[in-house]
Amino acid sequence: MKSSNEDRIYSDGNRRENHEGLKAWLNPSRYGWERISYWLQRLTGVFLLIYFVGHVIETSSLVDGKDAWNAMLELTQTTWGHLFLILVIGTSTFHSANGIRLLFTETGRGLGKPGRPDYPYSPVSLNYRQKSGIWIALILAATAMLYGASILFAGE
């Protein structure tokens, strides 16, 4: 595997020509719900990574004393702060629920069994269980966001 194959690929600067690169995962529109789920999983993953960095910065403000911490907390008490937190709730719920579905698929569970393909071909791996899993993750995320909004905006 680590072979002449890799050497050949990288000895020629044109190997990446016509490769889609980031465009491949930024465009979820052409291949059905599984591709949309892949796109959302990545977007929510990147968003949560950025959130966690921000969260570390936020909590580290404790080092600068009580006033600094309260000033940082006030940022989350604004309308935009609430909207951001609702987004965090939605993305983390979707990412977790869909991630659990993917953990099962990565061990070969819930995919169906190989068999004789018969026209018109319908891939068993993209079955109703997978599609249901994606919808459940979306519905859970939407429900969590609505619940979060009802709590956060209740006092206003």
Binding site: R35, L102, T107, G108, P114, P117, P123, L126
Partner: peptide, 28 residues
Amino acid sequence: HFAGSCSVVCPKGVDPALGIQLLRGHLV
């Protein structure tokens, strides 16, 4: 990452995504 697009476009019903996930099952 199991985007499943390979299985969507396969013209012979091979379902490569299924093979890959089952192969991962062997690995773990």
